[in-house]
């Protein structure tokens, strides 16, 4: 019971936490902030892609943890 409770709390925070990260990556993709002249501009699509990959990997981790719940 405790394991399930902890799992769902952790899952809500960790997976729910991906939303603001994706939103931030999307915002920086659509409206990149001006950077100093000698700093290379990030590829917004690649940044968004990395963010989505991280979110999916986190989802997969929690999926595996769900299967391993006692």
């Amino acid at each position: 019971m405790l394991a399930w409770f902890i799992f769902w709390i952790a899952a809500i925070v960790a997976i729910g936490g991906q939303i603001p990260l994706i939103v931030a990556a999307w915002r920086l993709y659509r409206h990149p902030a001006p950077a100093p002249a000698n700093v290379p501009r990030s590829d917004g699509r690649a940044d968004l892609g990395w963010t989505l990959v991280t979110a999916l990997a986190t989802l997969a981790l929690f999926g595996a943890a769900y299967l391993a719940l006692p």
């Binding site: 925070v13 986190t58 943890a65 719940l69 006692p70």
Partner: peptide
Amino acid sequence: RWQILVYSAIMVAVSLLPVAIG
């Protein structure tokens, strides 16, 4: 600063997983 807060919350959540999986 905002992303630091979000990543910190996710990190603390993930740190609880070892207990959940036994």
